[in-house]
Design a protein around this nucleic acid. Structure first.
Length: 937
RNA sequence: GCGGAUAUGGCGGAAUUGGCAGACGCGCUAGACUUAGGAUCUAGUGUCAUAGACGUGCAGGUUCAACUCCUGUUAUCCGCACCA
């Protein structure tokens, strides 16, 4: 018997020599299947065990589909531009391409060693000028259509890397690569107007078969919200500013406005008295790094500008502040603040003593047609020392309540509350902590036989001392005064109004829920949605606002001040115009340089004097020296695979039409808001241009999970717990590694590496190889395998389709176990089984196909085995018999047993008799072929 | 804070429409064959106990029957995070 290393080599050489997996791209006679892996960044570390997990998954599908008669496209390539190669080059003085080429060679060797059925003739590399010619060409189209442009905007600047970064490259205020600090900075930058596609990038998600969680991440990242833009005039000037709000129904509650510190109007409207403070606050904000800004988000800061805005709905003058809780980059960079109904505005208003007006109140109880209106209070008195609340226990006349009462005369809520506390409980030494939002409550008073609708103000007091006066109770007021814990309050206070009031008191802040409007003129009595619609109409009719959809997504910052990326095919002319290179000047190739390092915030290409200075039509110009981001080349590579050597167009449209979309796309979930979004954007754009035939490029998306170290930690070089695939292949063979990675658990789950697990997988491969060499392959029937064979074909086929590889493997193990102690097997079963195993273990199955089963051709295009449903029907079956839901016996039944026979059989069992003895059978439930349950009493 | 996911033996994990929880593998125990066994084969292996009881993060509920459905809750992981 040969070693696995020999067998692996033999078949890998065979596939290569025979071009076994080369796709005939123009063969449209068979149905197509496009199975794609996210192409790797060829890092210096080489492949880790996580790579083969996903790659094996797609390889299994690709191999099965070939056997099922599909024309399969299964390509691979390299996402070759990127920072690490450049950092390495700077450190060692080598050219980034030397390093990249070397890594690609390593990766290639490793991928081949694992036996993936890639069509290597379609290999692409994003750093290859033949490839990036077309990346530049697509950029050019985007530029000409106004989707790529230079704008002055706040960007993420990473000093250490000397480059700007896009939002998805900044994690927790640090750069994704290297973890260096990132600050906000206004800079002229290339951006891609991905926001133009925001709606489609959300809406098209309906049409693709992706994990719901990934779709949700993309939706949240794009962050579409519906609202209105409302214009506020600045009092005493001709200036005005626009705010974005999703809650224009609360406009009557707007008590101040806030501009972001970077807002253009700030300098204009700041009064002389406030100028100094405003300037120093602005200065303070600009110094803050992204990290500081997010970390300090609890404590609100801000300053008054000295100016006032006019609330368009009621003409009220409200102060204009600046604060960094308002972001320059979201919405209009300005807000109206409604502290009663927005958590952040509430905190800000509390801190700076700004007015709070409630315009929405929650409704409790059930309305009734004739109600008497009243103004009331609910007073909650809290004793901090003992952690107890003051309650009145009315027993069967209303249960446990806080102190309540109605206002008399022109009494304020506070006066009323203090009076009621004193009258009902005698306590006099209390002080107000907080006035809670008003509640609109409907109730029926039994003693008065009347319906009431009260507007109740909740007030939270703390008890200072136990000083008490006489109570002054009325006759019907019979209750016990009891101090109780919060547990008792929650369990025993059942009155809706009092319950709600208590909830407000423990969670102080803005009222953000729905309710009915008050203090809002023409909106009074309407709920949130009704009021919103009415206000929108009002704003538009009165020309102070418009309906507006806003997005969290920002435009894609597209330039990097780095060397190792695609040059931007644009020249800045001396006369201030911008010229784009002609198609025949593409690719614009990176110049050779001695020094790849950025100096003083300038891009490395700034030093390439000869390269950057050009003359076009007699006019002087300077090339753009920023390069494109890593995600540029990966945004369209799936199209190039279909026609990788075309030098006329990026890919032939007829071919694209046949092969797109990608049927299965597999890769890590971390690309949801980066690569996947950008690729969808570019493809959508190309679709609009008639250059891509499909709206969405990836029909089905699957994520592989992470392979963790055996203790459940992430594998990392620093922890020294990295498992090296080369070593695994050397020790156990490629098939055992592939099998183990598929057997570990569900593909998309994170799972720990177990060193003895792979040994178990090798044992299975050993067993298959050994047993198939021992067994006599016969043409006579070996019927004892019939059922398990058909079961196996069915389960493996279905499980592969669902990518449930772990359970497919367990079924194949069951099949092999059925062969234990047997000396011969029918050829059909033997061949069928080897075909089923082939996608996971291609080497050993080719070897058996060749040396045991005697074929000279590859198994790769043999017909996929089929199963016969009839062979799976069981004539005789064992089912469980339960008494009161507990299994007490099992009986054998045959398919044609009717319910009476089944029941009779069940009642004959000793253990059943024992359990129903002396009891009455209430009913018997028989589920055909599954279970029988006898219910007794 | 918001959004998403997960929770099952010593371990990785199975379980169509609710229908015998623990398939399959690892590990462990015993045995066979062996000079030997870290090869292979056979048998056993959820927990506690004597027949029986208890068991799918926790607490309730629906049902003849719940890992599966409903309500609440905890923990862990991931994503977003002052998004107006």
């Amino acid at each position: 018997m040969k070693s696995y290393n020999e067998i692996d080599k033999k078949w890998q050489d065979y596939w290569e020599e025979n071009e076994t997996f080369k796709t005939d791209i123009r063969d449209f006679s068979k149905p197509k299947y496009y199975a794609l892996d996210m192409f790797p960044y060829p890092s210096g570390q080489g492949l880790h065990v996580g790579h083969p997990e996903g790659y094996t998954g797609t390889d299994i599908i690709a191999r099965m589909k070939r056997m099922q008669g599909y024309n399969v496209l299964h390509p691979i390539g390299w996402d070759a531009f990127g920072l690490p190669a450049e950092q390495y080059a700077i450190k060692t003085g080598n050219h980034p391409s030397t390093f990249t080429d070397k890594n690609i060679e390593t990766f290639k060797k490793q991928l081949k060693m694992l036996g993936f059925s890639y069509d290597w003739s379609r290999e692409v590399s994003t750093a290859d000028p033949k490839y990036y010619k077309w990346t530049q060409w697509i950029f050019k189209q985007l530029y000409n259509d106004g989707l790529a442009k230079v704008v002055d905007m706040p960007v993420n600047w990473c000093e250490e890397l000397g480059t700007v970064l896009s939002n998805d490259e900044v994690i927790d205020g640090k750069s994704e690569r290297g973890g260096f600090p990132v600050v906000r900075k206004n800079m002229k930058q290339w951006v891609m107007k991905i926001t133009k596609y925001a709606d489609r990038l959300i809406d098209n998600l309906e049409d693709v078969d992706w994990p719901e969680s990934t779709k949700e991440i993309e939706r949240n990242w794009i962050g579409r919200s519906y609202g209105a833009e409302v214009a506020f005039k600045v009092d005493g000037t001709l200036e005005e500013f626009v705010v974005f709000t999703t809650r224009c129904d609360t406009l009557f509650g707007a008590t101040y406005c806030v501009l972001s510190p970077e807002h253009k109007l700030v300098d204009v409207i700041t009064t002389d008295e406030c100028r100094e403070k405003v300037l120093s606050y602005k200065e303070e904000c600009s110094r803050k790094s992204e990290l500081e800004r997010t970390e300090l988000n609890k404590e609100k800061t801000g300053v008054f500008t000295g100016s006032y805005a006019i609330n368009p709905v009621n003409g009220k003058k409200i102060p204009i502040w600046i604060a960094d809780y308002v972001l320059a980059t979201y919405g209009t960079g300005a807000i109206m603040a409604v502290p009663a109904h927005d958590e952040r505005d509430y905190l800000f208003a509390k801190k700076f003593g700004l007015e709070i007006i409630q315009v929405l109140e929650e409704e409790t109880g059930t309305p009734h047609s004739d109600e008497i209106k009243k103004n009331s209070i609910v007073a909650i008195v809290y004793d901090e020392k003992n952690d107890k609340y003051l309650t009145l226990n009315w027993h069967d006349k209303g249960g446990r309540l806080f102190i309540g009462g109605s206002m008399e005369g022109d009494e304020t809520a506070l006066e009323c509350a203090i009076r009621e506390i004193k009258e009902e409980t005698g306590y006099i030494d209390v002080s107000l902590i907080e006035v809670l939002p008003k509640i609109n409550h409907h109730y029926y008073a039994f003693n008065k036989n009347k319906y009431f609708n009260i507007e109740s103000t909740g007030l939270l007091f703390k008890l200072n001392s136990n000083r008490r006066d006489e109570q002054s109770l009325e006759e019907e007021e019979v209750f016990d005064i009891e101090w109780v814990s919060s547990d008792v309050v929650m369990n025993e206070i059942e009155d809706e109004l009092h319950k709600k009031t208590y909830q407000y008191s423990i969670d102080l802040g803005a009222m953000c829920g729905d309710g009915i409007h008050i203090n809002s003129s023409f909106l009074n009595g309407l709920n949130k949605e009704e009021a919103n619609n009415k206000m929108l109409t009002w704003l538009e009719e009165n020309h102070c606002g418009v309906k507006r959809v806003n997005y969290r997504l920002r435009d894609w910052i597209f330039a990097r001040q780095r060397y190792w990326g695609e040059p931007v095919p644009v020249v800045h002319m001396e006369d201030g115009t911008t010229a784009v290179l002609d198609d025949n000047e593409l690719p614009l190739v990176l110049p050779e340089m001695d020094d790849y390092k950025a100096h003083g915030g300038k891009a490395p290409l700034d030093n390439a004097e000869e390269w950057k200075n050009v003359v076009i039509d007699g006019k002087k110009g300077v090339r753009e020296t920023s390069t494109m981001p890593g995600a540029a080349g990966s945004s369209w590579y799936f199209l190039r695979y279909i026609d990788p050597h075309n030098d006329k167009v990026f890919a032939d449209y007829e071919l694209l039409k046949h092969w797109m979309p990608v049927d299965l796309y597999l890769g890590g979930p971390e690309h949801a808001v980066g690569h996947l979004l950008y690729a969808r954007f570019w493809n959508n754009y190309l679709y609009d241009k008639g250059l891509s035939p499909v709206k969405e490029p990836f029909k089905k998306l699957v994520h592989q999970g992470m392979i963790l170290a055996s203790n459940g930690e992430k594998m990392s070089k620093s922890k020294g717990n990295v498992v090296n695939p080369d070593e695994m292949v050397k020790l156990y063979g490629a098939d055992a590694l592939r099998l183990y990675e598929m057997f570990m658990g569900p593909l998309s789950a994170d799972k720990p590496w177990n060193p003895s697990g792979i040994e178990g997988s090798k044992k299975f491969v050993d067993k298959v190889y050994r047993r198939f060499n021992e067994l006599e392959i016969v043409d006579t029937d070996t019927l004892e395998f019939e059922k398990v064979y058909h079961q196996t074909v069915k389960k493996v086929t279905n499980d592969y389709l669902n990518m449930d590889f772990n359970t497919a493997i367990s079924q194949m193990m069951i099949f092999m176990n059925a062969l234990n102690n047997k000396t011969s097997i029918n050829r059909i079963y033997a061949e069928g089984f080897i075909k089923l195993l082939n996608p996971i273990c291609p080497h050993i199955t080719e070897e058996i196909w060749n040396t045991v089963l005697g074929y000279n051709n590859t198994i790769a295009y043999e017909e996929w085995p089929s199963y016969d449903e009839e062979k799976l029907v069981e004539n005789e079956k064992e089912i469980a018999v339960q008494v009161n839901g507990k299994v007490r016996a099992t009986i054998n039944i045959s398919v044609d047993d009717n319910e009476d026979i089944i029941k009779e059989k069940a009642l004959r069992e000793d253990n059943i008799i024992k359990h129903i003895e002396g009891k009455e059978i209430i009913k018997t439930i028989i589920i055909k072929g599954k279970i029988i349950n006898i219910v007794v009493k």
